[in-house]
C-alpha cells in the first residue's frame, strides 16, 4: 500500500518524511521497508524512525527539491517484504506504588481503581514501532484507550531506569536514569540497553511485547539475577 507522504526540510541537513498521523502496523511495515532502501543508498549518516515519520540526516546541507525527488522515486518503487516470523517478549514489571509513583493519579484521571490500571496495562500484546528517545527506549502501540493519560505539564528532572510509564496514547520503559515527562506506573528489573553486547537492544521494530505483573519479592530476585548476568528474558515466536 502506498501512503500520501509529506516531505519537509528539518534544519539544514535533514529531511523529515511523514506518514498519516496514526499508530498502525501497516504504517510501521511501510516505514521499515522505506528505511531499508534509504539505508542501502548509503548517503544518509543517520535515520531516525518514529511512529509516523522517518528523519533522514545527511552529512551536509541538503538541496531539498533534489533529495525529495530521489526519495519519491525510491518510495514509488517500494515493495513490502513477505510475512516474517515475529518475536514476542515478556517484560516483568512490579506495579508497587513505591515504584509506580503516578499510579494513583493515572487511576483517578481515568476514573478507575489502581488494580484496573495494572490489569489493563499488563493485558495487551504491544507492538514495538521504534527505538527512540534514549538508547533502548521501545515505543509501543496497543495501549488500552481508557489508560490514555496526558504527559505531565513539565518533565521531571529525573526518572529512574526501568520505570514503566504512560505518555498520552503511548506506553514504554525508561532504559536509564533520565529527565522525562511520562506518568510512572511501575518498574522493570531488566536491562534494555547494554553497549557491550553485539545487539545492545534485544528487541527490534516489528516485535511484540507483553508486560507481566510481578510481586516486589520477584522483582528483587529478578533484579539480582540481572545484576549477576544470569537472567534470561522469556520470548515466544509466531509465524
Amino acid at each position: 500500500m502506498q501512503f500520501d507522504l509529506q516531505y519537509q526540510l528539518f534544519g539544514d541537513s535533514a529531511i523529515l518524511v511523514e506518514w498519516p498521523k496514526v499508530l498502525s502496523k501497516d504504517i510501521l511495515v511501510d516505514i521499515l521497508a522505506f528505511e531499508a532502501v534509504v539505508r542501502q543508498g548509503a548517503r544518509a549518516t543517520d535515520l531516525i524512525l518514529a511512529y509516523h515519520s522517518l528523519t533522514i540526516c545527511f552529512p551536509h546541507a541538503v538541496h531539498f527539491s533534489h533529495e525529495v525527488s530521489i526519495l519519491k522515486e525510491l518510495y514509488a518503487r517500494l515493495t513490502l517484504p513477505s510475512a516474517t516470523t515475529q518475536t514476542i517478549w515478556e517484560i516483568p514489571v512490579c506495579y508497587d506504588q513505591d515504584f509506580g509513583i503516578d499510579l494513583r493519579e493515572v487511576a483517578s484521571r481515568n476514573g478507575m481503581e489502581i488494580d484496573d490500571v495494572i490489569r489493563l496495562h499488563s493485558q495487551p500484546e504491544y507492538l514495538i514501532h521504534f527505538i527512540g528517545f534514549q538508547p533502548g527506549f521501545l515505543y509501543l502501540s496497543g495501549l488500552n484507550p481508557s489508560l490514555h493519560t496526558p504527559r505531565r505539564p513539565s518533565p521531571r528532572l529525573r526518572v529512574d531506569r526501568g520505570s514503566v510509564a504512560i505518555g498520552g496514547q503511548q506506553t514504554g520503559v525508561y532504559p536509564s536514569d533520565t529527565p522525562g515527562g511520562w506518568n510512572i506506573l511501575g518498574k522493570s528489573p531488566i536491562s534494555f540497553f547494554d553497549p557491550k553486547l553485539a545487539e545492545p537492544v534485544f528487541a527490534k521494530p516489528g516485535d511484540g511485547l507483553r508486560f507481566q505483573s510481578v510481586s516486589r519479592q520477584t522483582f528483587l530476585e529478578l533484579q539480582e539475577q540481572v545484576e549477576q548476568g544470569h537472567f534470561q528474558l522469556s520470548r515466544t515466536t509466531r509465524d
Binding site: 518514529a50 515519520s53 496526558p150 518533565p155 505518555g167
Partner: peptide, 17 residues
C-alpha cells in the same frame, strides 16, 4: 504535544506549560 517524532541537537521544543 505531538505524536513522538525525531528531534535533533539544536531543536527548540515547546512544552505544554
Amino acid at each position: 504535544p505531538i505524536l513522538t517524532s525525531a528531534v535533533l541537537p539544536g531543536t527548540v521544543q515547546l512544552t505544554p506549560d
